[in-house]
Simulated assay, not measured.
Amino acid sequence: MDWKTFQALLSGVNKYSTAFGRVWLSVVFVFRVMVYVVAAERVWGDEQKDFDCNTKQPGCANVCYDHFFPISHIRLWALQLIFVTCPSFMVVMHVAYRDDRERKYRAKHGDSSKLYNNTGKKHGGLWWTYLISLFVKTGIEVSFLYILHHVYESFYLPRLVKCDVSPCPNLVDCYIGHPTEKKVFTYFMVGASALCIILNICEIIYLISKRIVRIANKVKRRHRNVAVHQDNYNDDPFNNCNVPVSKLNPKERPPSFKTAYKSSYRPSGLKLEEKIRASAPNLSTTS
């Protein structure tokens, strides 16, 4: 396995990760990959050779070793590291897909046009891809911890195991090489895996809570804009539909057209009638 290529691929994930994701990558590199490459491989390198049984029966030691160690710890951890880091490449591939779409869009509409403000920003489909990758990583970590506990019945590694599998002639005592050393590394790798699970859960909570806060802020901003628009509409001088009209006192009301006509023309009519009567001869006769 080429760990340098593996490390180079995972380094590209660091650009698109959150703070919890960067801590997770640091834990994977320092506490798991480095420990695996530097120390764990050497400790488990001679496990079958140092598995010693107190019998000379041919094939008994091999059968007993396969019975108690159906899969080696070191190979199980190698598979775990490969599977647990594969979901992170989903994010890198999604960003590469966005970059390709952005390149084609600029080639078609010009360099000044943009399809994405930032292809690595976790919005839309990339947010869902990142969240799904976290769930997948957490599921893989939990699955491998369960497999390790189920296969070896616990995380504890005993010094002595008793085997009565054929072709062993009777109950045979077998001794594990470097049991204390292997026990320490087993606990260390299990603890690092548990820490990665906690970091993944924290990152899931962080992403979901941040998304909820962003949606709540958008809703508040939308309601605020609607309220401001309604206030501006009510302040419009041409919009006086809702302005209450005060009732005027009858004494304060302006005179109507008929009243003004009568008041202006009736006195002159009376004066004219009096002049006609004064100038007319008295035609009345007395009997």
Rank of each mutant, 00 (worst) to 15 (best):
A280I: 03
S279T: 04
L272A: 14
T259N: 07
P255G: 03
Y261C: 05
K247S: 13
L272I: 05
E273A: 14
R266G: 00
S256E: 14
S279L: 12
A260K: 15
Y261M: 05
N249F: 05
Y265D: 03
K271M: 12
A280Q: 14
A278L: 04
L283P: 03
K262R: 08
A280D: 11
P281N: 03
T286L: 14
S264G: 02
T286E: 14
A278C: 01
S287F: 08
T259H: 09
S256D: 15
A260Q: 14
S264W: 02
P254F: 03
A278T: 03
K247Q: 14
T285Y: 11
Y265E: 07
E252M: 10
T285G: 04
A260P: 00
T286D: 12
A280C: 06
S268L: 09
P281F: 06
S263M: 13
K271I: 10
G269D: 07
P281D: 03
A280P: 01
G269A: 06
N282P: 01
K251R: 08
I276Y: 01
N282C: 10
S279A: 06
Y261H: 10
T259G: 01
E252N: 14
P281Q: 00
K247C: 09
S246P: 05
S263Q: 15
S268N: 09
R277E: 08
A260V: 08
I276D: 02
S256Q: 10
P281E: 01
L272Q: 09
A278Q: 11
K262H: 03
S263W: 02
L272D: 04
N249A: 12
G269C: 07
N249W: 03
E273L: 09
S268F: 11
A260S: 13
T259D: 05
S264L: 10
R277P: 01
Y265A: 02
E273F: 02
K247T: 13
K271Y: 04
R266Q: 13
T285N: 10
S287H: 06
P281K: 01
K251S: 12
T285V: 14
L270N: 11
L272E: 07
K275V: 15
P254N: 07
I276W: 02
K251I: 09
E274N: 10
S268M: 05
P281Y: 02
V245A: 10
R253F: 02
Y265P: 01
L283C: 07
T259E: 13
T286R: 07
G269E: 08
L283M: 13
N249E: 05
K247P: 10
K247R: 12
P255W: 08
L248M: 12
K275R: 12
N282W: 06
V245E: 14
